[in-house]
Amino acid sequence: MQTDTTTGAAITFDAVGKTFPKKGGGNVMALEGISLSVEPGTITGIIGRSGAGKSTLLRMVNGLEKPTSGQVVVAGRDVGAAGAAGLRDIRREVGMIFQHFNLLSSRTVAENVALPLEIAGTPTPEIRARVDDLIARVGLEAFRNRYPSELSGGQKQRVGVARALATRPKVLLSDEATSALDPETTQTVLKLLADINRDLGLTILLITHEMAVVRDIASHVAVIEGGRIVEEGATYDVFTAPRHPTTKSFLSSVTGVTMPNFIARQLVETRPEGPAQEVLRITFVGEKATEPLLARMGTEMGIHVNILAGAVEEIGPRPFGNLLISVDADRADAARAFLGQHEQRTEVLGYVR
């Protein structure tokens, strides 16, 4: 079934819902009212905790799951309405890499990469040329005749990436592809995916529970909680101005702005009587993210700042900083005004004596 996709999105989720039968009768809701457009050539991260519904959402893109309601449209085709032949066509355009690699232990690196082409009935000379090209792209020329048991985790995932690219897909799905890897290997695989996105113009949809992965590679992000998307947008915008508590919780793991326990235990919502400190979160964005604004505020206005936690990060080429500070409550209005004049965002978190 062809569907009109006037938005030009590579993947469209339109009011998608999914329920599963429950033991003892009835249904359990996995997804509800999911609407999301993934634009061609972007890298979009879907982040959520275990059980949030992100894997179910990803599996709908290649028809491994069908929506109970709504539509999933990939490259102009309604996946849920596709018959067997239509699904085969869709799956040729959708590659997938997995958390645990899913390589065949009895096949060499080259033979694992060749498998999707063999299934598609590609002539042998074409298979050989395509496999050579893909193995070179992922940097495994010296390992083409090795078996999976002879490879490191990172090398196995590179084989998985090469195999996912074998049929020249338009969309690449990543199912927690780095969560089984150490941090250094994770960065290597993420760089490979970024290079593929840039060189081939491939649309990448990845699911993860690690905000650092989203920060390092994704241009767009959607946060899923309890089967619903609770926040979405450009990664930089979501990181610098998170709205939903789930997003803020995820961000605390990568921005260095977790509230210190000794402050959290004392924090109250309303200003107490007598001397008090106002606790602020400052988000430094844009060109001024690395300027010494707090030092200037102390010098020019005599407002002294106690820094509680913070870090300067980078999303793509753009820096941003996150700081938790406390200032004398009597001078807090002036401090927030000063920072606002310099285009920085502030949020009052509470007060401590």
Rank of each mutant, 00 (worst) to 15 (best):
P67E: 14
T68F: 07
G70I: 07
V74W: 04
G76A: 15
G76W: 14
V79Y: 12
G80C: 08
G83C: 04
A85Y: 11
G86S: 12
R88K: 14
D89R: 13
I90W: 07
I90G: 09
R91K: 07
R92E: 07
E93T: 15
G95L: 01
M96R: 11
I97M: 07
I97L: 03
Q99W: 14
F101C: 06
F101G: 05
S105Y: 10
S105E: 13
S106N: 15
T108K: 11
T108I: 13
A114H: 05
L117Q: 01
E118V: 12
A120G: 10
G121C: 02
E126M: 12
I127C: 11
A129C: 06
R130N: 10
L134F: 00
I135R: 02
A136M: 11
R137Q: 15
G139Q: 13
E141M: 11
E141A: 13
F143W: 12
F143G: 01
R146M: 13
S149Q: 14
E150F: 11
E150P: 05
S152A: 08
G154P: 00
Q155P: 05
Q155L: 09
Q155C: 09
K156F: 01
V159Y: 05
G160M: 00
G160H: 07
A162W: 00
T167K: 09
T167D: 04
T167Y: 02
R168W: 06
L172Q: 03
L173Q: 03
D175S: 09
E176M: 05
E176F: 00
A177T: 10
S179T: 10
A180G: 06
A180Q: 05
D182I: 07
P183N: 05
T185F: 10
Q187E: 07
V189Y: 02
V189N: 05
L190K: 04
L193W: 07
D195I: 13
D195S: 14
R198M: 06
G201V: 11
G201N: 11
T203Q: 12
I204G: 08
L205W: 06
L205R: 11
L206M: 15
L206A: 07
I207M: 04
I207K: 02
I207G: 05
E210K: 14
M211W: 03
